[in-house]
Design a protein around this nucleic acid. Structure first.
Lengths: 232, 232
DNA sequence: CTATTATTAGAGTATATACTCTAGGTAGTC
DNA sequence: GACTACCTAGAGTATATACTCTAATAATAG
């Protein structure tokens, strides 16, 4: 593998693991056992590394959120979208953590991210539209659909931060992809009232699969279990 | 005013304005025209300053979210809660921006914030419960109420980040309290499907007051205006 | 083989950051 | 007026950070 690609990969790993703020270019070089000079031969600065990583992230999500227009949407499609988006979020999880600082430091990134967000919101809205066409949810006026899409976006992009700040009692407590995907439960919660009678059961069953199981008693009120959860 | 209090005030201002990451203890001292030594006489380190600011924030929100148990809840109460929470969010807006880093740097803060979040979630859930008792929304099983409360929390705490990252096209674009309060529109969107027939009109009217009016055309799709918005 | 280009090492640097240390001032009390 | 507790200045420091510079080495093309 080319040094350049190794730098991108290691950077992503370290950023995800420790947070962009805690990872210096020297750290990245040291982790790869290359010299700082070498790193700066391939990238002009830290922002450029981050920007390239963002482009990968963007490409991945754009690929996942490509809505097929030649056929109706299915529940499997919905599951795929949700799973994929959370997979992407997981792989590039450092990004949303320091988002505001990153955008302040790089105008290109700000512009691109802005457009990226708008594309995602459009895609989410389009998914709602197609879910209605497929008879899975009741159709809604565009204005409501847009506001709902934005709420879905807010829940998706910030579920991880919630887990890391409110759930884990220690900084070191590592998050798992499984926990992250409990965000799907939250997203499906948003859709419950709009489900059609025909599909309500199916979606509720799907949702149940992602139901959070917090082992920590302090969080019991978060999941609001009516009945006790089994030990595991 | 005591130097100690001036330090807290200036720190909060600077943090809000520039982000905690971009504000050093030397900056704070310089801004107050006091010596670094003086600052460190009053606070052991930067974390301590942040921690004390958090305690103020916590106190403020706890005060706002004190739910009166001796009378039914009204729509005015709901408006008050929403307005107050967003006011608090505004006054301490630096906090949620760098939350993860802040919690990683201070275990006390992590613990306190965790409990704070749980209190807020309980309060939100309790508000839903009382809204149902007052006949404003349909009653919901506890499990759903908890999940909804969490979604409300996610939308509230991350609305600002959304505005700053997706809405503003420049870092310098300053956010206004008015824009921030458009988050109330998003929160009320979550409640729409649960409104009772008796109150639907009233709440929808309330919601309409907070409807976002993005002047920037690139964001038109975000607000999803069916009809064009007037220039202003 | 040679000339050129691409890659790498590693020492070094300017700046910043959080924080310390000492000496001195100020305000109140007896 | 002296004692004491509190407060402040400001120079200074250890460490870190992003990044540079030069020289050497590998890869490639002719």
């Amino acid at each position: 593998m080319k040094t350049r690609d190794k730098i991108l990969l290691s950077s992503l790993d370290l950023f995800n693991e420790r947070g962009e703020r805690n990872v210096t270019t020297n750290h990245i070089a040291a982790h790869l056992a290359i010299s700082p000079g070498n790193l700066y031969y391939h990238f002009r600065n830290k922002s450029d590394i981050i920007y390239e990583i963002f482009l990968e992230y963007e490409k991945l999500v754009d690929f996942y959120l490509d809505i097929p227009e030649n056929r109706p949407i299915t529940l499997d499609d919905l599951t795929f979208y949700l799973e994929s988006v959370f997979d992407g979020l997981w792989s590039y999880r450092f990004f949303h953590r320091d988002l505001e600082y990153l955008l302040d430091s790089d105008q290109r990134l700000r512009q691109d991210y802005r457009e990226f967000t708008n594309r995602c919101l459009t895609a989410i809205s389009r998914i709602f539209e197609k879910l209605a066409e497929a008879g899975i949810i009741e159709p809604q006026p565009e204005e409501l659909r847009s506001a709902m899409s934005l709420n879905v976006w807010l829940v998706i992009t910030n579920w991880m931060a919630f887990l890391k700040t409110a759930h884990a009692s220690e900084a070191s407590a590592s998050l798992t992809l499984t926990e992250l995907k409990q965000g799907i439960y939250q997203v499906l919660t948003l859709e419950i009232p709009y489900l059609t009678a025909d599909y309500r059961e199916q979606v509720m069953t799907l949702r149940e699969k992602y139901r959070p199981r917090f082992p920590d008693s302090a969080d019991a009120l978060v999941s609001g279990q009516g009945e006790p959860i089994g030990n595991h």
